[in-house]
């Protein structure tokens, strides 16, 4: 659960951190991935969910390589050792081709699941932020009562498993009944709404903790100076402390985004067919566990690395000279 790594030092521990080699290669792959994903989503909404590439072609390729390899192995002549060696590669190519065939066939289904993963993540982080900002302000600047309430909320949520939280609101409180009105047609199922509520509640606590430590790293003189020109306390927090604190919180925020992408997979257990669940469905139909889990891993890797790159870009965009460099602040 990377969501909890809040010390400045462990922000180094971000999952992505850019690829070790070839940043531009990574960017190009990422751009291709997202271009494909967006086109795929649009075509699926338009009612076309067939693969973009012919599955049969790759299947044929796989069979062809395999047949050739088998033929090579039959050879008993002088070249037998060499052919045997080459056959090994041909078998490998055959495996790769059949993996590609498998991928091409099931990518549309996975793309559909990825849509919900993205929706859950974005909604969770956005709605979570709306709650997290007042929570963290209450935690740092509040009176005894508001501070304790914020603390209790944050610690209870962070101290219990997300899975249990989802079960409490979905099965325990049967929350989906409240969303029946908003889940017809193109709108998501009731379970998706419940999952969004769950991730919002959960993410709010983690984000509040990141923002709290960021707010605490804003020098106290900043608020004093704001008060000295006549800003009220709340205005001083809003116009002076938060703009700085939220910038400091970006590394923590990146962690939280990565956390949500990964843990949105738990929505599968409250019947949401997101990326993991759609993969599980495919595994159940095809029994090709290795292929499907390799694909899932690649999918999540792409999402997580994109998120990290994106947040790095955001950090650069909002950077202010001398701010966000945490030297001397630890």
């Amino acid at each position: 659960m990377s969501g909890e790594r809040s010390t400045a030092r462990t922000t180094l521990a971000r999952a992505g951190e850019g690829l070790p080699t070839g940043r531009s290669v990574g960017l190009a792959i990422g751009a291709l991935f997202w271009a494909w994903l967006v086109v795929r989503w649009v075509t699926i909404w338009a009612g076309y969910s067939e693969p973009f590439f012919p599955v049969a072609f790759f299947e044929g390729l796989a069979t062809g390589f395999e047949n050739d390899a088998l033929v090579m192995q039959q050879n008993t002549g002088a070249l037998a050792p060499v052919l045997d060696f080459v056959a090994g590669f041909w078998f490998l190519f055959s495996d790769v081709a059949s993996f590609v065939a498998f991928a091409v066939e099931y990518l549309p289904t996975l793309a559909e699941g990825a849509w919900l993963t993205v929706v859950l993540t974005v909604a969770g982080i956005a709605f979570g932020l709306v709650i997290a900002v007042p929570l963290s302000v209450a935690r740092v600047y509040g009176g005894v009562v508001t501070r304790s309430l914020a603390l209790v909320y944050i610690e209870l949520i962070r101290g219990t498993p997300l899975l249990a939280q989802l079960f409490v609101i979905y099965y325990g409180l049967n929350m989906s009944q409240y969303f029946r009105g908003v889940s017809s047609g193109l709108l998501p199922t009731t379970a998706v709404w419940v999952a969004i509520v769950g991730f919002t509640i959960n993410s709010a606590a983690y984000q509040a903790e990141y923002i709290r430590s960021a707010l605490e790293s804003v020098e106290s003189g900043q608020l004093t100076a704001a008060r000295a020109i006549g800003l009220s306390r709340i205005d001083g927090i809003r116009h002076v402390v938060l703009p700085q604190g939220l910038r400091y919180a970006i590394p923590g925020w990146t962690n939280e985004l990565v956390y949500l992408i990964k843990y949105s997979s738990l929505a599968a257990f409250i019947t949401v067919v997101e990326l993991f669940e759609s993969g599980r469905d495919i595994a159940g139909q095809t029994f090709q566990y290795l292929n499907i889990y390799a694909l899932l891993a690649l999918f999540y890797l792409a999402l997580v690395l994109s998120a990290t790159l994106f947040m790095g870009w955001v950090e650069d965009r909002v950077a202010i000279p001398g701010l966000g460099v945490r030297d001397g602040r630890e």
């Binding site: 900043q222 704001a226 002076v240 701010l323």
Partner: peptide, 8 residues
């Protein structure tokens, strides 16, 4: 004394 310009 410590100036306290708004850093952002």
């Amino acid at each position: 004394q410590d100036i306290n310009l708004f850093a952002h």
